[in-house]
């Protein structure tokens, strides 16, 4: 693993690396467009592309880029490299929000549910951030551990509410991310991710300064609290968008920023395109893999990423320890 990482590191040398990344990315898109039960050669290929494959590919790219960016911002907010929206209860809170919206207000539009989900995600994440302030800063791995349990508690709450409301069947669609249901007309909300990405790009320098901490940030003239609030909103909206449209997708926001940081450093403006592209690439790859593993059946994206992501996180934890 380390050998591969260092090979990538030496290959990543600016322009050439970007070129290689672009090639890989195009190949992944092509794979995503061509893999599926219905062949592109029979029937109406253009129709199939426009209605199903293109939306699905776009959704994977948007979800991946959005979650990776959300993870990056989350890590700045928590001042800890080992958290993301799925490890800070953000996605679980969003699921709780949708569930409540569905139960209390079944006729709500998708946008309305999305708003409730975002509000719930905001509350859940804010509570997480308040609680982790009590954790000792000398133990960086305590925060993800805590986050996993925290997310588990919220998920248990979600199950409890779903059971009360007789909505257990619906639950699976929110708790386990899946792109197989994505068709034209069912994913357009995700373009909101693009808006958020532009916002993060615009704020990149301020966020980099915020990542140095409150004192340094304030010393450099940053309104630290305001920045934290903006970041919280960004993370919550990104997580809510993802959960509403495709369901919970774990680990993307954790793995990608960590690998990019090891390869390209911590200046946000430089890292941002890599994080977005890396998240999109990882999600596309896992989605294609899920379609191929038990062809013609599908394995959901959340399941594939659960395996890939947990394995990669384990590697990060062990690698992090080896570095002292």
């Amino acid at each position: 693993m380390t050998a591969i990482a260092s090979a990538i590191a030496s290959a990543v040398g600016g322009r050439r690396a970007a070129l290689w990344a672009a090639v890989v990315f195009v190949l992944l898109c092509a794979a995503s467009l061509s893999v599926g039960v219905a062949g592109l050669s029979d029937g109406a290929p253009l129709e199939l592309l426009l209605v199903s494959r293109l939306p699905r590919t776009a959704a994977a790219i948007l979800v991946g880029a959005g979650l990776a960016i959300a993870g990056l911002v989350m890590q700045i907010l928590a001042r800890n490299r080992f958290v993301d929206a799925s490890i800070a209860g953000t996605e679980q809170s969003a699921a709780l929000g949708i569930l409540l919206a569905t139960a209390v207000w079944p006729a709500a539009s998708v946008a309305g549910k999305m708003a409730v989900a975002a509000a719930a995600a905001l509350a859940g994440t804010a509570l997480f951030l308040v609680l982790v302030r009590r954790l000792p800063p000398t133990e960086p791995f305590l925060m993800p551990l805590f986050g996993i349990v925290y997310g588990g508690v919220i998920a248990a709450g979600v199950t409890f509410v779903a059971w009360q409301m007789d909505l257990l069947q619906l639950l699976e669609t929110w708790l386990n991310g899946d792109l197989s249901g994505i068709l034209r007309g069912r994913y357009e909300l995700l373009w909101g991710v693009g808006v958020m990405v532009v916002l993060v790009w615009w704020l990149a320098d301020a966020l980099t300064i915020a990542s140095l901490g409150r004192d340094t940030g304030t010393g450099l003239g940053l309104d630290y609290e305001r920045m934290m609030q903006v970041g919280l909103v960004i993370v919550s909206v990104l997580a809510a968008l993802t959960v509403v449209v495709v369901g919970m997708v774990p680990f993307v926001g954790l793995i990608v920023p960590n690998i990019v940081s090891r390869l390209r450093g911590d200046n946000l403006r430089g890292a941002l395109p890599w994080v977005a592209a890396g998240g999109a690439g990882l999600t596309l790859a896992c989605d294609v893999l899920g379609r191929l593993l038990r062809y013609p059946y599908e394995v959901p994206l959340g399941t594939v990423l659960g395996v890939v992501g947990a394995a990669a996180f384990l590697w990060l934890v062990r690698g992090g320890r080896a570095r002292g």
């Binding site: 399941t303 659960g306 947990a310 996180f313």
Partner: peptide
């Protein structure tokens, strides 16, 4: 944390196998 991640890994592997 290693244990917790292994837990997630095992759970995901179970549901992958189940699929």
């Amino acid at each position: 944390l290693t244990g917790a991640l292994l837990g997630i890994l095992f759970r995901s592997l179970s549901s992958l196998l189940a699929r």
